[in-house]
């Protein structure tokens, strides 16, 4: 299974219009511009708050989620 800490927001360069709203909306400074495109410049800072995904007007940003069952509680 993909290690959760390796999962990062995906930015589709074909959809990114360089509006920089995601950069302004990122509370941790993880998103930055590289030329005219937004990139996750500091993955270590990303808190996975989904602000960038929600704010993107072109749907260029997506946050992948791993779906898991909650650990079973031991029988008492």
């Amino acid at each position: 299974m993909t290690s959760p800490d390796k999962i990062m927001p995906q930015i589709d360069p074909d959809k990114c219009n360089g509006c920089e709203l995601c950069v302004a909306g990122c509370p941790t400074g993880a998103v930055a511009m590289q030329g005219t495109l937004a990139v996750i410049a500091r993955p270590d800072l990303c808190s996975y708050c989904a602000n960038c995904e929600d704010i993107c007007p072109t749907g260029a940003i997506g946050l992948p989620y791993q779906i898991v069952l909650a650990p079973q509680r031991p029988a008492t």
């Binding site: 299974m1 993909t2 999962i7 749907g59 946050l63 989620y65 791993q66 779906i67």
Partner: peptide, 10 residues
């Protein structure tokens, strides 16, 4: 094990 994480768009 083999499942790929999905975005809300996906």
């Amino acid at each position: 094990q083999d499942v790929v994480p999905l975005t809300r768009q996906q």
